[in-house]
Nucleic acid binder design. Structure first.
Ligand code: MN
Ligand code: MN
Ligand code: ZN
Ligand code: ZN
Lengths: 135, 135
DNA sequence: TCTTGTATTTGTAACAATTACAAAGATACA
DNA sequence: TGTATCTTTGTAATTGTTACAAATACAAGA
């Protein structure tokens, strides 16, 4: 909790109770959560927390580069506090999103093109996770 | 239009007026359209077309492997009749989705992992397109 | 400490994309 | 022609997100 305060300052984000709680959750639960998952996890201990605040907070985090928004899940936005170059896998069955580390750094390089001004890359894999592969 | 009929049969999709019209649009307009774009393009010449039919049709196309659904656009699903291995770029400003061809085939290979049963890869780039780069 | 301006949070309403569902229409074939 | 099945349609419900204005918290100066 106190760490979260410090962590936020690294990204010039003024800490508040809500912001620290959200960042704390992201740091301790690296499951690429949705807004709803964050809200449902925090609201028991923060009964006045508003879902709008969770939206605002995540927007701010992304804007400041503290968090990455993933496009992998068409249904909801998912957020990742690990902004380093890595890929993701989403299970078509249970919807969980896993990290895929260890891909060649070349894969995250931006292709040469004069026309496009690329600032981000996202590599996503889809299929069934171990649990859902049945057996 | 007639081509579309033939095209659908390749994927064991029973052709109907609506299905052929949608496939024809996809084959002739390779812009990774949204459901709404497809609906709005076709409805003038097919006034009774229902948006639900467009949803149903695209679901069927994807299920049969005739079309790929892209996750690149968080706002709406986008569909690509080109199911070959290639990447995409989405402009953060105007929202258009471009193809990125010519990436090494290695990039589309599935990483070795015993745990995950991967069946698809999606490589997405984000930034500003030529038009929106101002200048 | 009070005052006042600014930043943040909250709750509600509006919006947009998608899904559910049942009725209507088209198609195939006995 | 009759009947079962497939497909389309329109509407309503659901869900995720955004807009917005009021309430609250915070920060600095008087
Ligand atoms: Mn991750
Ligand atoms: Mn494409
Ligand atoms: Zn799973
Ligand atoms: Zn653009």
């Amino acid at each position: 909790m106190y760490e979260s305060h410090q962590y936020l300052r690294q990204f010039s984000i003024k800490p508040s109770v809500q912001r620290s709680a959200v960042m704390n959750f992201l740091l301790k639960n690296r499951i690429h959560p949705t807004i709803d998952e964050i809200y449902l996890a925090l609201s028991p201990s923060m009964p006045t927390l508003s879902k709008t605040t969770v939206y605002n907070t995540l927007d701010l985090f992304v804007e400041r580069g503290a968090v990455r928004a993933l496009a992998i899940d068409e249904r909801n936005a998912r957020y990742d506090v690990d902004v380093s170059a890595h890929a993701h896998f989403m299970c078509r069955s249970c919807g969980t999103v896993h990290d895929i580390f260890g891909l060649k750094t070349q894969m995250f390089q931006i292709p040469e093109t004069t026309k496009l001004n690329i600032d981000a890359v996202e590599i996503s894999y889809f299929g069934k996770c171990e649990k859902c592969s049945g057996n």
